[in-house]
Design a binder for these strands. Structure first.
Length: 230
DNA sequence: ACCCAGGGTCATA
DNA sequence: TATGACCATGGG
């Protein structure tokens, strides 16, 4: 079986799209709030919610933790599922405050930090890893639906695997580099946005065989062109 | 009108 | 343990 190795996929996407610079200059707490708000939600809707929080001077853990639930929900309404997310934000803000914020959290190693984040109601594996990667400088590989779909199509997985197995698969095959993990996840999302939703663009897709539809022109390329793994 | 978006939780079998 | 319902807005 011939297929792109994970590092080759990364290099291909980076060459095609350039660095994405996700969450470059924002404060860590803002990044983590965004990670919760973006759950199953378009990022544009999250930006509105964050701007609204800023406008109310509420983009800090003290204000959110002590805010009125219904009022908070109304402020983040554009992010969808707003009652759920308002509770999630309050629980997380309390956690963040009680654990010494970023400096306090940074003291504990990844092996202890990740389970602690997962223990917060509303933070699952993808949200936790996004926080670790983009706010706490931990080199972890974020697994999302795009990642699963893309590497399923590239024939790395023959069937559905659980989150931790997929994460382990990538972390075993990639150099442990913070900027690489940060860029790779962003590049996968960017790639999916560009090429996995609109068929006419498939002819320019830099990844061979990443689209299963018959209409996709890249399917015509001979599989023998694909390099081996390892 | 339908589908999805930078998921997670909870109830059911 | 493994699916399914549910959350709920905004853009295509």
């Amino acid at each position: 079986m011939k297929r792109f190795a994970p590092l080759q996929v990364y290099e291909t996407l980076l060459a095609a799209y350039g660095p994405q610079h996700w969450w470059p200059a924002e404060k860590p707490f803002e990044v983590m709030v965004g990670a919760i708000l973006t759950q199953n939600t378009n990022w544009q809707n999250v930006e509105k919610a964050i701007a609204n929080l800023k406008a109310h001077n509420m983009l800090n853990c003290e204000s959110i933790a002590t805010s009125n639930l219904a009022q908070l929900a109304d402020i983040i309404r554009s992010s969808g599922s707003y009652m759920q997310k308002a509770r999630y934000l309050q629980q997380f803000s309390l956690f963040y405050h009680n654990n010494g914020k970023r400096n306090g959290l940074m003291k504990s190693p990844l092996s202890l930090l990740r389970p602690r984040l997962l223990a917060v109601h509303g933070i699952g594996p993808e949200t936790a890893d996004s926080m670790l990667l983009y706010a706490l400088d931990k080199p972890v590989f974020v697994v999302d639906a795009y990642t699963k779909r893309l590497f399923m199509r590239l024939e790395h997985f023959s069937h559905e695997l659980d989150y931790d197995s997929i994460q382990h698969y990538f972390q075993q095959r990639l150099p442990e580099s913070l900027p690489l993990f940060q860029e790779f996840h962003a590049l996968i999302v960017e790639h999916a946005k560009r090429y996995c939703r609109s068929k006419p663009l498939c002819a320019k897709c830099p990844l061979i065989n990443c689209c299963p539809t018959a209409a996709c022109a890249t399917m015509e390329i001979n599989r023998s062109l694909l390099p081996d793994v390892d």
